[in-house]
């Protein structure tokens, strides 16, 4: 075990964890930020997507010891009250079915729009292919990203 000081959602937090612990489990078990989901543990499903330095990463692949003081944003830190344009678009389209993958979908979508404010259909397809939705809400996710792009 080792002590790490992290910058999560704008807060300085201390964590005592094995250096090999993926950020996914640091967030969920140590910091009780359970919005970031476990789906596969091998960077194949995107449910654990967070932002590291503003870039979308799979938190199951990022060890706590590799983060240093780079800022991490999770779904809980995206907005105070669900008012981020992407969250609002998700609600407008009533995207979720079971909802489990949606935090990861939203974090991927936000990262896409941050670097490409008006993506084409093909660009959305390519970017979002890393996030699995087992319920099959892809058409709504796609529409919500277009709405969020228009509303930003």
């Amino acid at each position: 075990m080792a002590l790490f000081t992290l910058n999560v959602n704008g807060n300085r937090v201390e964590v005592d964890a094995d250096p090999s612990t993926p950020m996914l489990w640091v967030l969920r078990d140590h910091l009780q930020l359970v919005g970031t989901k476990y789906g596969c543990g091998v960077a194949q499903c995107g449910a654990c997507t967070v932002h590291l330095n503003g870039t979308a990463v799979r938190s199951c692949m990022i060890t706590v010891s590799s983060v240093g003081n780079q800022p991490i944003t999770t779904i809980e830190g995206l907005s105070e009250d669900g008012s981020h344009p992407v969250q609002k678009a998700w609600l407008e389209h009533d995207v979720p079915q079971c909802g489990y993958c949606q935090a990861g979908q939203i974090m991927s979508a936000v990262a896409l729009l941050d670097q490409n404010p008006s993506p084409s259909d093909e660009e959305i397809d390519t970017w979002m292919n890393g996030n699995i939705c087992r319920c099959g809400t892809y058409t709504r996710i796609h529409a919500a990203i277009k709405t969020a792009a228009a509303n930003r």
Partner: peptide, 20 residues
């Protein structure tokens, strides 16, 4: 609208795996 929609898009605990 889905009554849990806001909780889902803000990442609040809802699922068994989130239970503490």
């Amino acid at each position: 609208k889905n009554v849990d929609g806001h909780k889902i898009v803000t990442g609040q605990p809802l699922y068994g795996l989130d239970y503490q």
